[in-house]
Design a protein around this nucleic acid. Sequence first.
DNA 1: GATTCGTGGCC
DNA 2: TGGCCAAGAAT
Length: 324
Amino acid sequence: MAANTVTPAFPAPAGPAAPPGADAPAEAAPKLGLPLPVLHATVLDWYAANARDLPWRTPDASPWAVMVSEFMLQQTPVKRVLPVWETWMERWPTPADLAAEAPGEAVRMWGRLGYPRRALRLHGAAVAITEKHGGEVPEDHATLLSLPGVGEYTAAAVASFAFGQRHVVLDTNVRRVFARAVTGAEYPAQATTAAERRTATALLPAADRTAATWAVAVMELGALVCTARGPECGDCPLFTSCAWQRAGRPPYEGPARRGQTYEGTDRQVRGKLLAVLREAHDEVPQARLDAVWPDAVQRARALDGLVADGLVEPVEQGVYRLPR
DNA sequence: GATTCGTGGCC
DNA sequence: TGGCCAAGAAT
């Protein structure tokens, strides 16, 4: 694991030196048996030593750069996001730059990241930021939430990581870390529960900047150590206090977690159709789309869906292109 | 609350 | 090999 060479955007105050009670109530974290300041220092120290050197975490990363990364990282691994993010930031360094382009260009440059509606929504967010917010990414959580493609998680993440605010940031990594360390379960429930929000709220450091770094630190712990499969518990700073570890790492017992089938689905057909549109730099005749999938009924349904979503634009009878 | 929505890599 | 998973949002 590479040592972190990034200066944290919002460095935490020296954790171990923080006087008890200055940071948060001195009560022990539920089921962790650690005073909150100790828990915070433990995770923050681990983060300082182990965080990945990601470009959207550098001190000079703009709020827009953070927002673009958060859109791309929705359901998509960091490794695949990195090169596309670099391309986007070079081409569209500000929201206004993206807003000035056709939405289809965003879809094209999205490449094979998947879930291309995110590209359309990010373009929509850029337009809204440009037209309604003076070209600056809003700092306010509620205003962020009003942007297309920005939900509970992304609003909290941008407010926290780009602006150093204190928010509960609950993503799949954080949920898994808390499920294990606090609740003693291998995996969290399928949907976020009120209990999870209470736990996350109770553990959040009191100071804004510390809370912001805590959020990214817990996420990083989930991404690098407390992983879904094959967690590296021997490398975990919470090894001795983790409720799941102390319980003997009992296997998941809840309802079967829904698998994501893909072969033969409309999603696969949509993907194939859109790939043709992306690679063509102009209009595409029907015949080229027909070639990607044998079932005409499913093909037509997929294409209709893409048009309905605004990802594809009919030009004339039997001719399509990315939206302008 | 359950579904839909891409793509690729890994154990 | 193939099921499972990856910084979710919208409906």
